[in-house]
Nucleic acid binder design. Structure first.
Lengths: 334, 334
DNA sequence: CCTCGTTATGTAATGGATTACATTATGCAC
DNA sequence: GTGCATAATGTAATCCATTACATAACGAGG
């Protein structure tokens, strides 16, 4: 492997000059600069990353943890984050936690090892190591929460107005004429689900539908959507519309309807959440709350960079715009 | 930040002993070992990653590039790869190339910077830096190709028997009674598509269907599936079945059918490829060639580790089993 | 022609761990 | 009790780039 000393020798200059020519070209006079650049190219020199990082105490790296990388909602967020990271010459390390606390802890420990300069976590739980860091450094801790907003964690976050979005979804169903609605939430441990649920309940209360909202708790998966839709439709007085807190659960719910010989949207309307890339192509095309997935990723990285580069002033919590996208899975009740 | 020297001081031993106690415990006597461990814990010590990596010339990191991280096929492969990497105490850096040569090159350059010990690429193109490395180190070059198999690249690879799988799909349609088949391939630059196409053509030739196979070249996306299905169905003598080289294109094709007032599978059968996580939940549930996605990722990492740990003997090219999964999108022709 | 400020370059310290080699302690055989 | 092998520990070199500080070169102003 070629080192900076090899290049210096080849170009007949000191290592300091090589370093400068490569990372701070203005500090070197023209003749030497091109001499160095030429030598570096000829030798195929690339600065050793570990050495650089050791010396500068910067890894130029961000760790992003997701509960499930193969969920297209998360992978879209990742895409936006990678974009922004790359633009700022950072690289993005992705950790799939499988909702497992041990893995969360492992990824968080990368911060203590200086393996990453900062961390973005998509989820609602913060690993102990990271909690300790927040306790110690407060708003300076290089940790940002994406998608969720859990005030108790004391970290900056980017998310949509979940309660508002959920209320809009209920309003849409109400406007179509639905008066009895089934809701399939995600785990209520997560603020994302609690916020959406409170939005639903607020909207229902406003419209005196309080007793007409049936709630089931799912886990965002297709299977749980399917199973809980069956439950809801087996009620004595079944709902005419289902609002699922993820598109995957909506897809599961529609499968359940089909199983029961019901048509969506003719017999039962279904609203999803997220607007994943298949929501449009699915049949029926899903009515869903669209989250600005790439933008969430991008913004999370930008916020983290603000912290890392000391531009941030205290904690911030940013709300990005969502949009109810009405497609073919909702219609007036029969 | 606590360093090894801090721990050594606290425990009253040398830094060498601390290092040994942590990474090679057997080399240290019991009383000191626990002394060190205790001190390390009390101080919250974690070895600086860059320093370790500089000294050992190992980054314990693998870079995995994918053309599109939000494609659930790729994210499933990633999942498997992360699994295997973590188990071997490596971490996985993921690079989304967006099919862009410049990004591919950027990620490949991580090898020269020793930012990663090895690289796995899902795709058919190898960045110049990586090609140079292969030219120089041959089978020792820490580079593995996942999903595709391009002999000219001289790298080890993991994939399924694409030609065989495609032939099976055609056979399935033939068995159902289809005699005129439309095929929507991926870009023919990639061996994956060429292999599948030759499988299709072989099967067609064997059954004297040579002139009954209409081929269109897509790009694996939902949109191209939709558009090309329209083209195929506008033919004078339209096919009664479509075989798409990705589930996404199959989903697009089914949308096109619906647009034209045709039902899948009653009027036209559709076969996909990959068995992404929505293939089952989609309506109609897709008949598709299932690839062992997680296993491909896992195996690719294992092969790379074999190279990195000098266990590999020359190049290898591993074929994992695929399976034609028959669901609801195929039926006899009308 | 000297001095001072500026620019360009070089020298060497530095970052934090690992590990070859040197040294000391321990145990066993005779 | 001595000698020797073995185990435990310490000392210090090493990995490679960056950068503070020192030095040299140069031009301008007096």
């Amino acid at each position: 492997m070629t080192t900076i000393a090899d290049v210096a020798r080849a170009a007949g200059v000191s290592t300091a000059t090589v370093s400068r020519a490569l990372s701070n070209p203005d500090a070197v006079s023209e003749p030497r600069r091109s001499l160095v650049l030429q030598a570096a190219k000829a030798l195929g020199y690339a600065p050793n990353y570990a050495a650089k990082s050791l010396r500068t105490t910067r890894s130029q790296r961000i760790i992003l943890t997701v509960p499930d990388i193969s969920n297209p909602f998360f992978s879209a967020v990742i895409r936006g984050a990678e974009e922004a990271a790359l633009a700022a010459r950072y690289s993005l390390l992705i950790g799939d936690t499988h909702h497992d606390a041990e893995r969360e802890e492992y990824y968080a420990s990368m911060l203590s090892r200086r393996e990453a300069d900062g961390m973005i976590f998509l989820g609602h739980r913060l690993a102990p190591t990271a909690v300790a860091l927040v306790a110690k450094e407060g708003a300076e801790a290089p940790i940002v929460n994406g998608c969720e907003f859990e005030p108790g964690l004391n970290v900056s976050s980017v998310h949509i107005a979940n309660a508002v979005a959920a209320a809009e979804a209920v309003q849409h169903l109400y406007d179509l004429g639905h008066r009895r609605i089934g809701v399939i939430t995600g785990p209520l441990l997560s603020p994302i689900s609690r916020d959406r649920l409170s939005g639903v309940q607020g909207a229902a209360a406003g419209r005196r539908l309080w007793n007409e909202v049936l709630v089931r708790t799912g886990d965002f998966s297709v299977d749980s959507g399917e199973q809980l839709a069956h439950e809801l439709l087996s009620e004595d007085n079944p709902p005419t519309a289902l609002f699922c807190f993820s598109d995957e659960m909506a897809i599961g719910a529609i499968a359940a309807l089909r199983d029961r010989g019901l048509d969506c949207p003719r017999d039962v309307s279904v609203v999803g959440f997220d607007d994943i890339r298949y929501a449009r192509a699915f049949h029926p095309a899903l009515t869903t709350v669209s989250q600005p997935k790439e933008a969430i990723g991008r913004k999370a990285v930008e916020m983290l960079l603000d912290i890392l580069e000391k531009r941030a002033q205290g904690l911030s919590s940013i709300t990005l715009p969502h949009q109810l996208v009405v497609r073919a899975s909702t219609a007036p009740p029969p």
